[in-house]
């Protein structure tokens, strides 16, 4: 920005503004919510990765994180509950040049969308899945999600959650993902870097971001506000790149640490490449052959 000639004090434009639909602001996220932080990280990753904006599409499901698609100035698709990945699959297979990002929450992607999640990972479809994990169905009113820590209070678990939560990095890795990382809304630099790497990775890449939900989850569990949760992550997160994903489950009530980091970054044949190869003899000038050429 060139302001040499001006004596007026002008605020510099936030560098992520060009990626946002500012006319949709103010956004619907509560004060202290971690989702906005992740969007900032995402926008900065997009800025750095050099993917032209018209080759990038974002698909969201339902819920607070599901609203991300609505605030990004990209081709975006706000779909039905839990089905962001199948919609993204269709988008990707029809236009393999497109970078397709799925951006949704733990209830949406790991609950009702859990089946789609494991199958997209199994196929190693070239998607970047960003999952913001706030341990609750926030917009729907605070029900337990499959990641809800044991003993936490949720509207559907007034006596505390007793079910085992998902260890999502392990789920993704064991289902076939090629890139798996977990960061938090406190670790913004690392989160941005992880999203950047995930965008550049060919195959199913998965980034879990732990983020505070002060209005629903923290308040119901009397865990303080967003600042307290970020402080907790600052003090209790252990960065362990390359950790065995089976050891990174979160049990906030019984162990006082959360393992974060880049857990997996491997090479494996991607779905569309495998498709091309498998049908090489049959694909003659059809849409698939052209698109993949």
């Amino acid at each position: 920005m060139n302001s040499n000639d001006s004596t007026e004090c002008t605020l510099p434009l936030n560098p992520v503004v060009p990626f946002l639909r500012t006319e949709r602001m103010p956004h619907i996220w509560c004060p202290g919510c971690g989702i906005g932080t992740t969007v900032n990280c995402f926008a900065r990753a997009v800025m750095d990765c050099g993917i032209p904006l018209d080759e990038l599409a974002i698909v969201s499901g339902i819920g607070c994180t599901g609203r991300v698609a609505g605030y990004l100035k990209l081709d975006s698709f706000h779909t039905t509950h839990g089905r962001a990945i199948p919609f993204a699959t269709g988008l990707k297979l029809s236009n393999p040049k497109l970078h397709v990002v799925v951006y949704s929450g733990d209830g949406d992607l790991a609950g009702i969308g859990g089946n789609h999640f494991i199958h997209a990972a199994r196929r190693n479809l070239d998607l970047t899945v960003i999952l913001v994990n706030n341990f609750t169905y926030a917009m729907t009113g605070g029900q337990a999600t499959p990641t809800a820590p044991k003993e936490s209070i949720e509207t559907t678990a007034p006596y505390g959650v007793f079910e085992e939560p998902f260890n999502l990095p392990h789920l993704a890795a064991s289902s076939g993902a090629v890139y798996v990382a977990r960061w938090t809304a406190y670790h913004v630099v690392q989160t941005k870097k992880a999203i950047l790497e995930a965008l550049q990775k060919k195959g199913f890449s998965f980034v879990e971001i732990l983020a505070p939900c002060p209005t629903i989850y923290l308040r119901r569990n009397r865990l303080g506000g967003a600042v307290e949760e970020l402080k907790y992550y600052k003090e209790h997160c252990v960065i362990q790149n390359g950790a065995d994903t089976k050891d990174v489950g979160i049990d906030l009530r019984h162990q006082d640490k959360v393992t974060i980091g880049k857990f997996l970054d491997i090479e494996k044949k991607e779905y569309y490449d495998a498709y091309q190869e498998h049908y090489a003899g049959l694909l003659k000038g059809g849409k698939q052959a052209v698109a993949g050429a």
Partner: peptide, 25 residues
């Protein structure tokens, strides 16, 4: 499964364990 505006039925019944109500989210 949680869904607006029906979720409160599940919430309400989840509180009634003492009446041997089984709720499964």
């Amino acid at each position: 499964y949680p869904i607006t505006p029906a979720s409160e039925i599940l919430h309400e019944l989840a509180k009634l364990k003492h009446l041997n109500v089984v709720t499964f989210q």
